[in-house]
């Protein structure tokens, strides 16, 4: 029973990060119909921002070697600020890599390439400025909180519980906003058809910016949380998550918010169930799963089927 609970917690906390990640993809996909390949880089950036804001010093290899903030923020303050920083970068990204294409009415496929270019720039900029070494956010940042909790006999790391709680909170806030508020409904209208939405008096351009901002915020927070629970394994560490997030996105259904959450939790749990001696095959399990779902239900678990337009 304890082992099962442990497994459940491990799976859910990893899954929650995947869900946060995939939600960022989904928001952008729902309004623009493209995948933002720089999303992994924004996630990485969020992790570095968090590390920096809690007063971490930059290592010796980058141009900013030894740089450190004169103050150290507590983690609960550093995390949302890092999220805001990541959101700001996501807005810049929208301005330089997505909006010019939209203004010219270019093929949406091109945004895959421009966002990839932006991602390459971001990742290498990080490498140039702070070096390629890995950083870790010490658990002491959590101050008075204990390192591990005991829930119904199972020992669970506090970080994991926190991860799950924060992710759950953000996901709930997001779905309340999308379904319950005027601007959330406007976002849905834009994802249905940007031009019609514009005709109905919705500022589509603004809604797209909002989608990018939220997407960046979620990625930044997810980055900070992973930095705390695992570590920041160098500038490229977002890529693996980016790839997994892509799988989660399709598994749940492109453009579906509950789908992204469900997909994240399923993949997280599936990975947690892979026994330790086969852990090398972990990634193959989630992608194999994704592949099967695609073949049986191409629109994903909760997505709408693609209409065959004539």
């Amino acid at each position: 029973m304890e082992a099962l609970l442990q497994l459940l917690f491990n799976g859910l906390s990893v899954g929650a990060v995947y869900a946060l990640f995939a939600l960022g993809y989904t928001l952008v996909f729902s309004v623009l119909g493209v995948i933002n390949f720089a999303h992994g880089a924004i996630f990485t950036l969020g992790a570095y921002f968090t590390y920096f804001l809690i007063g971490g010093a930059v290592g010796a290899n980058g141009l900013m070697a030894g740089l450190q903030l004169p103050f150290a923020l507590p983690f609960w303050l550093a995390l949302p600020l890092a999220g805001l920083g990541a959101a700001a970068v996501a807005l810049v990204l929208e301005r330089i890599a997505f909006r010019p294409l939209r203004d010219r009415g270019s093929d949406p496929l091109l945004a895959l390439i421009t966002s990839l270019g932006a991602g390459v720039i971001l990742v290498n900029l990080i490498q140039l400025l702070v070096g390629a070494e890995s950083y870790s956010i010490p658990v002491e940042t959590l101050e008075s909180l204990p390192v591990a909790l005991s829930i119904a006999g199972a020992k669970v790391r506090t970080v994991q519980v926190m991860l799950l709680a924060i992710a759950g909170l953000l996901l709930a806030a997001l779905s309340i906003w999308i379904d319950g508020s005027r601007s959330g409904k406007a976002l849905q209208a834009v994802s249905e058809d940007p031009i019609t939405a514009q005709l109905l008096g919705i500022n589509s351009g603004r809604m797209i910016q909002i989608a990018f901002g939220i997407s960046g915020f979620l990625a930044g927070v997810a980055g900070g949380l992973v930095g705390l629970s695992v570590s920041i394994a160098g500038p490229y560490f977002g890529i693996g998550y980016g790839l997994k997030g892509l799988g989660v996105l399709v598994l749940g259904g492109l453009g579906s918010v509950p789908g992204a959450v469900l997909g994240g939790l399923i993949i997280g749990l599936a990975e947690a169930c892979v026994p330790a001696e086969l852990s090398g095959y972990k990634d193959a399990v989630s992608f194999g799963f994704l592949f099967l779902v695609l073949l049986i239900r191409p629109q994903g678990l909760l997505g709408r089927p693609q209409a065959n337009k004539v």
Binding site: I96, A97, P100, L101, R104, S106, D107, L110, I113, T114, L116, G117, A118, G119, V120, I121, L122, N124, L125, L128
Partner: peptide, 18 residues
Amino acid sequence: LRLIVFGAVILVGPLFFP
């Protein structure tokens, strides 16, 4: 800077040559 310039080329290319 080389990979940053490389990224910039991939970013800018489709804007000018859709």
